[in-house]
Design a binder for these strands. Structure first.
Lengths: 249, 249
DNA sequence: CGGGAATTTGCAGTTTTTTGAATGTTTTGG
DNA sequence: CCAAAACATTCAAAAAACTGCAAATTCCCG
């Protein structure tokens, strides 16, 4: 494996998972830990990641203090949120999952919008409450402290009783072969229910997460009606998704 | 978990919740208290938070929150919350309403407590999420922006399906003649359901609200099992309530 | 194509960092 | 004033980082 190739691999992994461990990488790529360490140091010098004892972290992971580094991913999510918000019209019933991208959407809603939002995400609901003209339906059940959404069969049943006009999913991984994938069983179940219960499924993700996959299957690519990323509509990365029949925004 | 990762986690939590406890963090992240303490000291040196005995506070807390309005009533509510928290034992199912007094209760819960809390109050649930050993069931339905709890028939049905060991109601008015009264129809419905679904009903209120009444009837005085105020157990104000068969704490 | 320079990589020994535990001291709240 | 909780201090083991060096690889230029 070439050095550049290895570094590209590391960088992708850092951006995707927000952290990498030196030991783990050295086993994965089959090089010595020293080599990994030197790679990480080099890339840290180039500003591509943040070196820490034991591995490295992505910029977005790092702190609010380093506003500069955080803005990148944040800005992307804001631009995604703006596009997504433009799809919502007065009177609509909108189902949303949780996650940081959805939070940006919640913040980006135009103040005049009169719609009904349905969600099991506690932070998202808090955000929706700030909007004067929005009605909120909260999906109840056991609260997952990890993802801060409600999970479980009750929640799924409640979602299934709804027929929403549109749903927004913040997704963790998507590729053409595996479709939308994730890594938390309970969250996957909720997302499946959301997809079933809405007429139009919109997936939101930053482009870094495209063409990656995780262990659990959420839905096939053909169940996704629209994909919103921070990229321009005719970015080459998106072309193959458009060909697969997904609308791009 | 990497050190920096851990510190980032702590910092997020401090900024979100304005305070962290060392014990709680060490249980949550599964490291020794010494490690947490060293982290907090380090971050305090960097000016990211304020170290205090037992944990740490956010900067915004020390500045903004201290100047905040009524420390008097706050103190009373804290003392009420402490009494209330002492009633909760491991393994219990606890139903709670919303309101500021309940929020204090949520903050006052001992970190080691292992119980299941059921509530439709969004701020309360947020608070419960900070406790590592507490399971949370969120009651879903329409969200009332006013009271920040879920209201409606769905919520009531969900509550009715529960048989809780104990319930805590933050109440707005109580007197001997009218019992517990309130002024929001939807909230009253929820409180009625809570009372029906729990074996023991505990009412929390600051003494100012005693011997006052509001238009809507929540429950009669004989349905209240215990009354907790900031007053001493044998305060004359409480005597007549004790005579009416209510336990006083 | 060839040989020397530059780069990359792994290794061994040493140093630093991190963490948990042990000990004694201070703070806290009743 | 007392007991429990939190703290500071010190020590030791383990993990990771650094250092220097030599072998392997790649690159470059004639």
């Amino acid at each position: 494996m070439l050095k550049k190739e290895r570094q590209a691999y590391i960088l992708r992994k850092v951006n995707l998972h927000n952290k990498v461990l030196s030991v783990q990488l050295s086993q994965e790529i089959n090089v010595s830990e020293d080599t990994i360490r030197r790679d990480l140091l080099e890339m840290a010098d180039e500003g591509k990641l943040i070196k820490v004892h034991g591995g490295a972290l992505s910029h977005s992971f790092s702190q609010v203090n380093f506003i500069k580094s955080d803005v990148y991913s944040q800005e992307n999510k804001v631009s995604i949120a703006k596009k997504a918000a433009s799809l919502i019209q007065d009177g609509m019933f909108v189902l949303t999952s949780g996650g940081t991208t959805i939070m940006e959407l919640a913040k980006a809603l135009p103040p005049g919008l009169k719609a009904t939002f349905i969600s099991g995400s506690i932070p998202a609901v808090l955000e929706y409450m700030n909007h004067p003209n929005i009605d909120i339906i909260l999906i109840g059940d056991k609260v997952s402290k990890n993802s801060k959404i409600t999970i479980g069969s009750q929640a799924i049943n409640q979602i299934k009783r709804i027929k929403a006009d549109i749903s927004f999913l913040g997704i963790n991984a998507i590729d053409l072969e595996n479709g939308v994938t994730d890594n938390d069983w309970d969250v996957v179940m909720i997302k499946k229910a959301i997809i079933e219960s809405s007429q139009k499924v919109i997936c939101l993700t930053i482009s870094e997460k495209m063409n990656t996959f995780q262990p659990l299957h959420v839905c096939d690519i053909n169940q996704v009606d629209m994909l919103i990323t921070e990229l321009d509509k005719d970015d080459p990365l998106l072309r193959q998704y458009a060909k697969a029949g997904i609308e791009i925004l």
